[in-house]
């Protein structure tokens, strides 16, 4: 069967002004409706790879070689105008610290409505109705009440749901979640991961989940890429990477979980929660 990749990155190289490579020859692909996990620590180049896909590299960095193809479009050569129809509309993203992406002095509902009006051209009234609908789909209870709240009145998990609602407002095909659950409590992290999995099932959303934690990625991804020092050191199906890790670094990540995670206790007993 031929794979239907919605996104493929080939030989991506990101360099600084002086030409030092930070991301080196990275290749990866995600199937339409699939979920790809990118695992690595800070400095591994996982976020720069995502930012290259989104066309939002930090100042001073540029893509020096390689291609990023989204649904047949080469993203590396796009001008500003062409990006407007793609970013937020067809490719969207959520990041680690949701509060910093929201205006603290505007209610979260207004902020979502504004995006809806700009991105999808809805009227004020229709945008309001659609916002309530989106909040509800994100599992926020009492959407009408949440609509009128300011960011400081919401918990981290609720803010991340608001950000996911905003990211999904134009019904994108691909969502990149870069450490989107890292700052959350474990139970809230599970709620957000469950939500992402629901969205994938119900809307056919394609996911790229970026995390330093292999366990987070293995919860919902079917393919995993492990990065270190700007290079892909391992990639494959989640099952292969977890059960038959080839690279020493991947093995050390797995050992850490086996030695210190709750797996140790689960392996010996039947979990009865």
């Amino acid at each position: 069967m031929v794979r239907d990749d919605i996104l493929s990155v080939t030989g991506l190289r990101v360099v600084t002004r002086d030409g030092d490579p930070l991301v080196h020859d990275v290749s990866l692909a995600v199937e339409r409706g699939g979920a790809l996990g990118i695992v690595g620590e800070s400095g591994s180049g996982k976020s720069l790879t995502c930012r290259s896909i989104l066309g939002i590299l930090p100042p001073g960095l540029r893509v020096d070689a390689g291609t990023v193809t989204f649904d047949g479009i080469d993203l590396t050569g796009l001008d500003y105008r062409s990006w407007q129809g793609l970013r937020g509309n067809r490719i969207s993203a959520v990041f680690q610290d949701p509060a910093s992406y929201l205006n603290p002095s505007i209610t979260v509902g207004k902020q979502l409505s504004e995006v809806l009006r700009v991105k999808t051209g809805l009227s004020r009234r229709a945008a309001h109705a659609r916002s309530l609908e989106l909040f509800e789909q994100m599992g926020l209870r009492e959407p009408a009440h949440v609509y009128r709240q300011y960011p400081f009145e919401l918990s981290g998990g609720m803010l991340q749901r608001v950000l996911i609602a905003i990211a999904l407002s134009a019904d994108p095909e691909l969502l990149i979640a870069d450490e989107a659950t890292t700052a959350l409590d474990v139970t809230v992290q599970a709620e957000v991961l469950d939500l992402l999995e629901d969205l994938r099932r119900d809307r056919g959303l394609t996911l790229i989940l970026v995390s330093h934690d292999l366990a987070v990625v293995s919860q919902i991804c079917d393919h995993v890429v492990v990065m270190r020092d700007g290079v892909v050191v391992e990639s494959g199906t989640a099952d292969d990477v977890l059960k038959r890790p080839q690279h020493e670094y991947t093995r050390s990540l797995i050992e850490h979980h086996t030695a210190y995670g709750i797996e140790k206790f689960l392996a010996e007993e039947v979990l009865d929660v």
Partner: peptide
């Protein structure tokens, strides 16, 4: 971990990310 009693502890264990999926 293996026999949590309180609803919160159960949720906590059921929410922990594991490489094995943990069966939850």
């Amino acid at each position: 971990i293996a026999r949590p009693q309180h609803p919160y502890t159960r949720l906590l264990v059921g929410s922990a990310t594991t490489l094995t999926g943990g069966g939850v």
